[in-house]
């Protein structure tokens, strides 16, 4: 079991080729090379915090403002999901709840846990933590559903006085929160998970 770093090499995270440690950029794909991303955890926390700060107004302010002849309603993220559920579309309500509430909250917790575990030099369950990181990277984008729904409805429901839908301030806050947490996950260098493991001799790699 030898890592590139132990062999005096640096791995390109884009194309997987290895170069001598001091190489500045990959000769194959041109990406800058770093054995471990410098300041990885600091950047993770900075984007994480920015995402969290945006997530609060995203839940307090309305995503959608619906005006009809007789009424006007402001829907927050959770309010909108409850509204859909009241109409009997439990499946769709569940999709919205998962994408807009469940995924962002899980993401904040999971990224925080990964960054802390690396900081505390945890040696436990590296494979499970690696999988967690992959899941986080995969599901993060799906939170954009609610933003797209707001964009679609604001363009679509412009029926003069009969009904109109306008985006609320939470749409911007929520979009920023999703994008910032995607940056946060991207800033995490998963190679850090493996750095503090006790080296186990005799484990052949092929």
């Amino acid at each position: 079991m030898t890592t590139a770093r132990q062999a005096g090499l640096v791995t390109c995270r884009t194309c997987a080729r290895v170069w001598p440690m001091q190489t500045e950029s990959c000769g194959r794909c041109g990406m800058p090379l770093t054995s471990r991303e410098p300041m990885s955890l600091q950047r993770v926390w900075a984007w994480w915090l920015a995402g969290l700060v945006c997530y609060i107004p995203a839940n307090l302010y309305p995503m959608l403002v619906t005006e009809t002849l007789t009424s006007r309603s402001d829907d927050t993220i959770i309010g909108g999901a409850i509204e859909i559920a009241r109409h009997g579309d439990l499946g769709i309500a569940l999709i919205v709840l998962i994408a807009s509430v469940f995924i962002p909250v899980i993401k904040f917790i999971a990224i925080g846990y990964l960054a802390l575990s690396v900081r505390m030099r945890s040696q436990k369950t590296p494979v499970a933590r690696m999988h967690l990181f992959e899941v986080i990277e995969f599901i993060g984008r799906w939170s954009m559903i609610d933003v797209f729904v707001v964009a679609i409805l604001s363009a679509l429901v412009q029926l003069s006085v009969v009904a109109s839908i306008q985006p609320g301030p939470a749409a911007l806050a929520f979009a920023l929160s999703v994008i910032f947490t995607m940056f946060s996950a991207k800033s995490f260098d998963p190679r850090l998970i493996w750095d503090y493991l006790p080296s186990r001799a005799g484990q052949g790699a092929s």
């Binding site: 079991m1 030898t2 890592t3 590139a4 770093r5 062999a7 090499l9 640096v10 791995t11 390109c12 995270r13 884009t14 997987a16 080729r17 290895v18 054995s35 590296p126 690696m130 998963p190 190679r191 998970i193 493996w194 790699a205 092929s206």
Partner: peptide, 11 residues
Amino acid sequence: LIGCPNCDLLH
């Protein structure tokens, strides 16, 4: 040689 982009192991 190929380095693992996620854990830096050489193969």
